[in-house]
């Protein structure tokens, strides 16, 4: 969907992005992760030409972005920022309708799209459409921000630390909604985050950046199993990296076939993370949990030893 090739960008002599090559596949969710100043936000802002690259090229759906006028390019990409930036003088529905109106859609289609999106992000249209942003909670505002970014049916959604400013329970709710939305719409998402948990939960692919360089790409399980450099290992927890690895793996990845014996407690879902399984084992004082259903449909079990299997 979007391909960065040999991208360099400097600000006043300091290299913010240094020779980055990255391919984001159509329909995937790629998380750009790294510490502050690693160049991840800069890379994102190069994608929709809020910044222009010094060297290298960016291809969006096969075309070089420098051949697409910035305004047109941005309307084809959704954009969500941490501070949301809803227009305070417009109602929720007017905010969501921003890009469709810029694109000149007929009003009936806009109304339908707004209602559809409010529903998609989990805000009942009847309750929220006519309200103003200052009448919403922070989490609701960001839901509107996501709906607004999706309104023009973008091919790519750019998100710059979208859930950084909300409290952890709200953040998890927003992350769940985002995953559900992606499943339903199939939109390609490029997301910037410095939150390790968020990256592992959301990222189909991780792209780890440090001091402007791309250090490693891969699925969360791959990156956490074999961090390419010390910097990657440090970012994902240093000595606690192993615990974060449990977040990246599912029960189904490690459980084995076997008949649960009685008295082993509630079966756990194969989709649950190993972290959740470990938490239950610790809480319930067991070293084995029954698993509801493996990929082949058969019941299984998960032993404590399965967690540490290489």
């Amino acid at each position: 969907m979007i391909r960065f090739e040999g991208i360099c960008k400097s600000f006043g002599g300091a290299r913010a992005v240094n020779d980055v090559t990255l391919d984001v596949a159509r329909g995937s969710l790629c998380a750009l992760v790294g510490t502050s100043g690693s160049g991840k936000s800069t890379l994102l802002r190069l994608a929709n030409r809020l910044l222009e690259a010094d060297e290298g090229s960016i291809r969006f759906d096969g075309a070089d972005v420098t051949n697409i006028p910035p305004v047109e390019l941005r309307r084809r990409m959704g954009y969500v920022i941490q501070s949301v930036g809803l227009f305070p003088h417009w109602t929720v529905e007017r905010n969501i309708a921003t890009v469709p109106r810029l694109l000149g859609w007929p009003s009936a289609r806009i109304d339908q799209r707004v209602a559809e999106l409010l529903d998609l992000v989990g805000l009942p249209p009847g309750l929220h459409a006519r309200r103003y942003p200052d009448e919403l909670s922070g989490g609701q505002q960001q839901r509107v921000g996501v709906a607004r970014a999706l309104a023009g049916e973008p091919e790519l959604l750019l998100m710059d630390e979208p859930f950084g400013a909300v409290d952890p329970p709200t953040r998890r709710g927003l992350q769940d909604s985002l995953m559900a939305i992606q499943k339903r719409t199939g939109t390609t998402i490029l997301l910037v985050t410095h939150d390790v948990e968020e990256a592992i939960r959301l990222g189909g692919t991780l792209a780890v950046l440090d001091q402007g360089r791309l250090l490693q790409t891969g699925t969360p399980a791959q990156v956490l199993a074999q961090p390419a450099t010390d910097a990657v290992a440090r970012f994902f927890g240093g000595p606690l990296l192993g615990l974060n690895r449990l977040k990246a793996l599912r029960v189904g990845d490690r459980a084995h076939a076997g008949a649960p014996s009685p008295g082993e407690g509630e079966p756990i879902d194969a989709e649950a993370t190993l972290e959740a399984a470990l938490a239950r084992m610790v809480a319930e004082g067991r070293s084995r949990l029954p698993v509801r259903r493996l990929a082949n449909g058969a019941p299984g079990v998960l032993d404590l030893a399965d967690l540490v299997r290489p």
């Binding site: 809020l50 305070p88 810029l102």
Partner: peptide, 15 residues
């Protein structure tokens, strides 16, 4: 005017 509003407007493709 909040800078985030202007940033969002630019990012959404307003001229």
């Amino acid at each position: 005017v909040p800078p985030a509003v202007v940033e969002a407007a630019r990012g959404m493709g307003m001229t």
